[in-house]
Write a protein that binds this DNA or RNA. Structure first.
Lengths: 209, 209, 209, 209
DNA sequence: AATGAATGAGGATTCATTCAT
DNA sequence: TATGAATGAATCCTCATTCAT
């Protein structure tokens, strides 16, 4: 898996060959098939580790008792960033996998494990928002939609910054962009004293759409 | 190109074969190579159209004189959504392309055209934010970072909703999720009276990174 | 197909590789796949020609009006021998194919064509026996069973003589063995005047089994 | 060997893997190679058992003193049927083996054992016919040719009925087809009073070939 | 301008066999 | 005796690309 990761970090799923991986692992191609049914499964297995990690981290965030929802949001951002740091390469590949039909070829067992972990992670995120809304700290939007948005923001930034690095290979703006994005997001879902609530009601039509 | 688009809408870039496209176009494979140097170029040419469209739309938003920056943000959201509607399939494939190394195989001419259009689009977006900041309506963050975030948010949501549709093929939440996301973003970058500005200064360190 | 036949005559279906065939045909492997979906189809296509030929020959035998059923049986033997001569290699491979599960991988179209031709051939044979029985020239056994037996006898002799040739590569006994076998078969199904009919009634129990 | 047989009953020689067999035997693949030089030898070893059995049964038939050659022929048919019943799977696979080049890879020792058993069996059969001819009960054809024909008839019917079962998996017609086939064969080689012997002399040329 | 047959490198996967333990 | 992880050659098949017509 370490070898596969190294190979996938250089070539994408389609360009990386089993022989590349075998060579990197100093094994023969056949050996890989003792442990992974096929290329897809090998790839998906990599994602599993990071999904597990993400799941745990998001549950922690959800369960920890912070004074302020503000703090909880910062913890969420921090958790996601740590997920990225845990294994950037695999995460990026996972984002690619996510919107491709590679998923269909997976063994049912592996697929369901992936789905379960994803669902569980999303549940944790949704609950964070649910609480904040209940407490009146967050604007009243569907918690699942908010989780979707956080996830989209996170994956979008990771992919976009990665793609910029591919072209320019300049400095890494991921961390700082993520900070600003979450700052804006935090500010955006926070409720404010009456005086400025006009804004909120104005936009509420979206939710009832 | 119409045929290619139709094929890419069913299969992804790697699964779609030149023969598929030729068949769909009622041409022979050889003929395609009279007009496109290779598969990558054909694909990239598709992106060009949507990039052009996006460029125009974002310039419009930038140039139009709205009363309020609030309205400008809504116009930006609307423009991006129209870019999606203009050609969802190509857009999605373009997002995939964006963070892969397919870009490397392009002819210099095509690549530079793509880069120019992207840069121009980002400039338009950045300027929108720059203005807002100057006027004091938006919080003071690097305009390019804000453009990056909008772009990441947009692509993240499109990809994520697409991926959910791949699994469930249920209703389409793209429009509504995008609305909420931009609502939050608008709220998040807006400046407020003094009383709640403490938050802003706290996070300002990011920007000076 | 000529090249494939040559290769299949030396190696069996499993040992013969597509590259062998391509080399023999002075083509590249890919080219073969322009004309045959896969190895199985290529193989089965070879059989088709001989099945067609057999079908025609057996129909001829069935339709020709001989004075004596005796002569019809000789014509049947001759027809089968000509089927062998038409393409010995393919016939032998077809016998192998027949009792393997290779059949399952064939395209429905090809499979049904094979089945139709086989059925049609068997129908012709059965009818020959049916007539002979009706006329009282042949003993009263189920015509299909008689067709099965002729077919089994034919294929059994071809395979067995081939296998002897593989080991000893001596003279070819096929023709002469086939002659004797059919002579015995003819004598065996012929009815005789009353005096020796005791034999028949004795064995009749089989048929009513 | 029991495990191998079970596996070969489901998959054919080529599809069955050594690992399949090892798993079925609750052994590791390596262990099989302690007892069999290779896959071919393992397979051939299975045949040995049935060849031994056949050899014994045919000798019995040959040695038993029946009143009538008619009865001897019935005993021969019964013996062959019992060979089939002794181990249908191995017998069928053996028929497949017989006309393939698998034989070439066998160790000289095993090959000669197989050849000896086969020859011995054929000798027994030939002698049965020789006697019948000497006594004037059977028509005067080369005894070895007659043995060949019986063997071809037997193997042909077994393979053909097996192949029909593969397609339809309906009822088993082997027993009854075999009965009719041998009935016809018996009638076919029997000599009759002068009046109908004309046929015989006509075909005698074959034998002097 | 178009064809489409031919290419052939390349890649995933299999499996009989080995050998250090 | 037995193991079973490792092997790696071998094989089927794909498909972007070419080029003579």
């Amino acid at each position: 898996m370490v070898a596969a990761k190294r190979v996938f970090s250089v070539k994408n799923f389609n360009k990386a060959t089993m022989e590349d991986i075998a060579r990197e692992a100093e094994l023969s191609p056949g050996t890989i098939y003792l442990y992974f049914k096929n290329k897809e499964e090998l790839f998906a297995s990599l994602s599993l580790r990071i999904l597990h990690y993400m799941n745990i981290r998001l549950e922690q965030v959800h369960n920890e008792n912070f004074q302020e929802p503000e703090e909880k949001m910062k913890a969420l951002k921090q958790a996601l960033y740590e997920v990225y740091e845990f294994d950037p390469i695999v995460l990026i590949n996972m984002f690619h996998l996510q919107s491709s039909e590679t998923l269909r070829n997976l063994s049912p067992h592996l697929l369901s494990e992936i789905k379960d972990l994803s669902r569980s992670s999303f549940r944790s995120m949704s609950k964070i928002f649910e609480e904040g809304i209940k407490k009146g700290d967050f604007i009243d939007r569907h918690p699942v939609a908010l989780a979707d948005i956080v996830w989209a923001l996170f994956s979008g930034i990771v992919l976009w910054e990665e793609s910029k690095r591919l072209i320019d290979s300049k400095k890494d703006f991921l961390k700082s962009t993520l900070e600003i994005a979450f700052e804006i997001f935090r500010r955006g879902i926070k409720t404010y004293p009456d005086s400025i609530n006009s804004v909120q009601t104005l936009n509420n039509f979206v939710y009832n759409d």
